[in-house]
Write a protein that binds this DNA or RNA. Sequence first.
DNA 1: GTTATTATTTGAATTTTATTCAGTAATATA
DNA 2: TATATTACTGAATAAAATTCAAATAATAAC
Lengths: 149, 149
Amino acid sequence: MKHIDQKLIPLLKNGYCAPKIASIAQKLKEPSTTIHFNLKKLEKEGKIKAYKAVFDYRKIDEGFCAFVLLKLLPSEYKDPEKISMQLAKYDEVESVDIITGDWELILKVRVKDQDAYYHFIKNVLSREGIGKTTTLTSLKQIKSEFVAY
Amino acid sequence: MKHIDQKLIPLLKNGYCAPKIASIAQKLKEPSTTIHFNLKKLEKEGKIKAYKAVFDYRKIDEGFCAFVLLKLLPSEYKDPEKISMQLAKYDEVESVDIITGDWELILKVRVKDQDAYYHFIKNVLSREGIGKTTTLTSLKQIKSEFVAY
DNA sequence: GTTATTATTTGAATTTTATTCAGTAATATA
DNA sequence: TATATTACTGAATAAAATTCAAATAATAAC
């Protein structure tokens, strides 16, 4: 047993997939070469960023999901993108947005459980110019990444 | 001109893709049949829900993104899943989560522009047992669906 | 409107890839 | 240890993607 599962998941999380040209061609009733041409164009224009898998996160040991609302320290006000890009590097972080309103940033975070989340908060969100954080824990995901559960 | 682009995007948004077994096999230095076997297993177990494309939403006329915090009316308190599943049906809705804290639900919504968002709020979020809504407009997306910009 | 230029579409041939299946190895069970 | 179950893998086959040249359609230039 080689535990290939655990090597596949990180690869499929942000790539190593491709469009099924033949299926699309059949669905749209167009020649597959036409579909191929149009897909390459979309990719070249940068409209398509990646092909990836969507998981049932409960089943792959990433059942804990939370939205984190962040207030930045005044020192970071002038350049919120810098800290955002640092946070974006973490695999646990599904999304980072700079937002309007009472907070400056919202993160979507996925980890194994509450313990792992505490660890993440403690190590990542305590440093780097972050002021107050408000966590909205997801009790149940009804839809994620456009895919319904 | 057949405007195939606009037919491809909705298809690729939640399917019509597949893992690149040969590339994965090369990356992990395993036989492609072994990768094939393990992928089928992950799919059968329901751990993989879909293979899909991730877009640069600014480039495909879906540049407006917002998080919506929802308070439900007391009548919906007993069954927040019902209304969540109704909201999940909309293509504009990337995610729906039932959460802890001062709100009951959080949505991630993608539309063309502020006008389209107003239209969405007006038509979808005014009815169906929803009390107060708070919108957090995304000024800039740094990372989305695990893919960095 | 006509022509030139560019972009898009498409079929046929080729290359690459996924899939099937039978057999082997590894692990778990009795 | 014997037996059953699960996981892995190579060889053959089937299916798909890609390349390329040519045709068509759209757009720009005159």
